[in-house]
């Protein structure tokens, strides 16, 4: 049987030439660092000093240092950063951005008009503005003495809250919900828009309640999107660095997440070996999370 060429315009060799630059960049700046970080994590590499020129192999001591359970939960150590990150991801991604994004998409489903345009634009702008600019805006927003939030509380006769001193982790969780909800909102909004209108007409005819519609029509059809949102938002939130611009991980490391901890170890103290070990642990957790979601996603669909 004669095999039909896949395309008249694009021969296989031309196609590979088209792919080459992208593959080169991805190989050099994504795959190579992944392999190298693993190697560095078993050495005592530093930026300066004798270990910079020829680092020596130190086995797993960088890892055992991280998991020294007698003191790892102390403020400023790895356990503390990991605990903060888990709370941060759970609060701002899984219980925050994804449900809120779905709620907004549902609230404006099959609606058009100015109100929708305003809400979607505001959320999207919060998502795409430069991190440094929104960080200053949030430093002002939650400020104890002058912040808009406390001014609103005062209007209601409630006492002031010193967010960045008393609840720094909660503050960056709320910030991150504000920052990233737009992605889930846009994703669910597109998914809901793809549901054929005839489904709604049928639901109208049989007089289905809102809950029935959600359970029997919406949820099964957007389940795959839900997992995609959970995967991507979880990974992004795990790795996000913007909270550093607001709290710097403080006060006293109480809002220090793993990326901030990595940055501090690797680029404040220039302990590259230890920083690499943290990165490896972090990526391992990310890969486990991603595989878990992917398995769940495939099983439900299949």
């Amino acid at each position: 049987m004669q095999k039909k060429p896949s395309s008249l315009v694009l021969s296989r060799s031309t196609g590979l030439i088209f792919l080459a630059p992208a593959l080169l960049f991805i190989a050099l700046f994504l795959f190579f660092p992944l392999v190298w970080v693993l190697i560095i994590s078993f050495t005592d590499t530093t930026l300066t000093g004798p270990a910079a020129a020829n680092p020596s192999f130190v086995g797993i001591s960088n890892y055992t240092g991280l998991f020294d359970f007698s003191r790892w939960m102390r403020l400023g150590n790895f356990g503390n950063a990991l605990r903060n990150t888990i709370i941060f991801v759970l609060g701002s991604a899984i219980l925050g951005q994804v449900p809120l994004g779905l709620a907004i998409a549902l609230a404006f489903h099959r609606r058009k008009g100015l109100l929708r345009e305003i809400v979607f634009s505001l959320a999207t702008i919060a998502w795409i503005l430069p991190g440094v600019a929104v960080a200053f805006a949030w430093i002002a927003f939650l400020d104890r003495d002058f912040g808009t939030f406390n001014a609103l509380l005062a209007l209601l006769g409630l006492p002031k809250i010193d967010w960045y001193f008393d609840y720094p982790l909660l503050a960056i969780i709320i910030f991150n919900i504000w920052r990233g909800t737009a992605f889930s909102m846009l994703l669910f909004s597109a998914a809901l828009g793809n549901i054929p209108p005839s489904y709604w007409e049928t639901a109208d005819v049989i007089g289905a309640s809102s809950w029935q519609r959600f359970r029997d029509i919406i949820f099964p059809l957007i389940r795959s999107n839900l997992f995609t949102a959970l995967i991507l938002v979880t990974l992004w939130t795990f790795n996000v660095f913007t909270p550093y611009l607001i709290t710097g991980g403080g006060p006293l490391y109480r809002s220090e997440t793993v990326p901030i901890y990595t940055y501090r170890v690797a680029f404040k103290f220039f302990e590259f070996g230890k920083g690499a070990a943290i990165a490896v642990v972090m990526m391992t957790i990310n890969f486990i999370l991603a595989s878990f979601y992917l398995l769940m996603q495939r099983r439900r669909v299949g």
Binding site: L28, F32, P33, W36, I40, I231, G275, A279, N286, F287
Partner: peptide, 21 residues
Amino acid sequence: LLVLFSSVVQGTAAMVPIFLL
């Protein structure tokens, strides 16, 4: 998978090797 992969590697995790590279 490449998108997922870049979400994991890009950012703080790859800082050290990228700096050395």
